[in-house]
Simulated assay, not measured.
Amino acid sequence: MGIVASAKRIMRLMTRHGLVPLSRSAKRYGSYKGEPAKAPKNLADRDFHAEAPNRLWVTDLTEFSIPAGKAYLSPVIDCYDGMPVAWTIGTSPNAELANGMLADACSTLKDGEKPIIHSD
């Protein structure tokens, strides 16, 4: 008949009149691949104070907008004195950024030091 209408409008009209389409539309993408891994215990329990260096570290990923685009900072902070242990800066928030920071931070540890690392 030459009438042009959006698919959503047609679906609304069909629903209003109790009509069902003969064929279903394509499925939407879903990234769900099963049950997620069990979350680790919250050892810090929101108490971000340490009695000695290298007992509790906290980390997060922060995005900055700069004239050249976006930059991402991935630091690890020691909760004993609030000082950064290590950090990496990159143009993409990927695993390489976080893993590089962790490798740098772990290289500062002495024998026997095993800090708890807390992240969101």
Rank of each mutant, 00 (worst) to 15 (best):
D78W: 03
A86Q: 04
V76N: 08
T62W: 13
N94G: 10
C106L: 13
I77M: 15
P75V: 10
L97N: 12
A105C: 08
G100S: 03
L43V: 07
F48E: 02
A50M: 00
D78N: 05
T91F: 04
T88K: 14
V76S: 05
E51R: 14
A39K: 15
N54A: 08
K70N: 05
D81S: 08
S65R: 14
T108A: 12
K110F: 01
K41S: 07
I89N: 02
G69W: 01
P93N: 08
D81T: 01
I89D: 11
A98W: 05
C79D: 00
E96G: 14
W87H: 14
R55F: 00
E96I: 11
D111K: 14
A50D: 00
P84V: 08
V85G: 06
G90L: 03
S92V: 11
P75E: 11
E96C: 04
T108D: 08
I89K: 05
T62S: 14
A105T: 09
L61E: 06
S107H: 03
T108Y: 15
G90D: 11
M83I: 13
S92H: 15
I66N: 00
C79K: 01
D60C: 12
A98Q: 04
A105K: 02
D47M: 10
V76Q: 12
T59L: 00
T91C: 13
P75I: 07
D47R: 15
R55W: 00
A95E: 14
I89E: 07
S92M: 07
E63K: 11
D78E: 06
N42D: 15
A103V: 08
T108W: 08
G82E: 03
L97P: 05
G69V: 13
V76H: 08
L43E: 08
A68R: 11
A98S: 11
L109H: 05
T59R: 05
S65M: 06
T59D: 09
E51G: 15
A50G: 00
D104Y: 02
D78R: 11
H49S: 15
D104A: 14
L43A: 01
A86S: 14
A50S: 00
V76C: 10
N99D: 07
Y72I: 07
D47W: 06
N94P: 09
I89S: 06
G100R: 02
I66T: 15
K110D: 06
A52E: 13
E63P: 10
M101I: 14
F48A: 01
A98N: 09
D60E: 07
D45Y: 05
T59F: 00
L43M: 12
P53R: 15
I89Y: 06
C79N: 02
Y72S: 10
M101N: 15
D78P: 03
E63Q: 15
P84F: 06
P40H: 13
